[in-house]
Simulated assay, not measured.
Amino acid sequence: QAAVTYGQADLQQHCLAFIESCTAVRTRGFHELSDTVLARVLRSDRLAVDELDLVQAVREWAHVSSAVLGRPVPEVAALPVRELRLPLLAPSELATLESHNQRDLLIPVESIAAAWRSHALRRGSGVPPQLCRPRRGTRPRDHHRHLDPHAK
Rank of each mutant, 00 (worst) to 15 (best):
P128T: 08
D142F: 02
G7K: 14
D53G: 03
Q1P: 05
D45N: 13
Q13Y: 12
R103Q: 04
A2Q: 13
R43F: 08
A48F: 01
P134F: 01
Q8I: 15
D53F: 03
R145L: 01
R43Y: 11
V109N: 13
R82I: 14
P129V: 04
V68E: 09
I19A: 05
I112P: 00
T36Y: 12
D142H: 02
D10N: 15
A115Q: 00
A57I: 07
L105P: 05
N101Q: 11
D35M: 03
G29S: 09
R71H: 09
H63Q: 12
V25T: 15
R85Y: 05
S34K: 05
V73F: 07
D35K: 08
S34I: 04
G29T: 06
A9T: 14
P87A: 11
L121M: 10
S66N: 06
L97P: 06
Q12Y: 11
H63R: 12
A95Q: 10
W61R: 02
V68W: 04
S34E: 09
S99D: 12
L42G: 05
S66A: 08
L69P: 09
Q12C: 13
R85G: 09
L38I: 04
R28C: 01
P80E: 13
S111G: 12
R85N: 08
V37A: 13
R59A: 00
T27H: 04
A57W: 01
A39F: 04
I19Q: 02
L38P: 07
R59Q: 01
T5D: 14
A90P: 10
L97N: 09
R123H: 11
R123K: 10
R82N: 15
R133V: 04
L47M: 10
G124M: 08
A114G: 07
A113H: 09
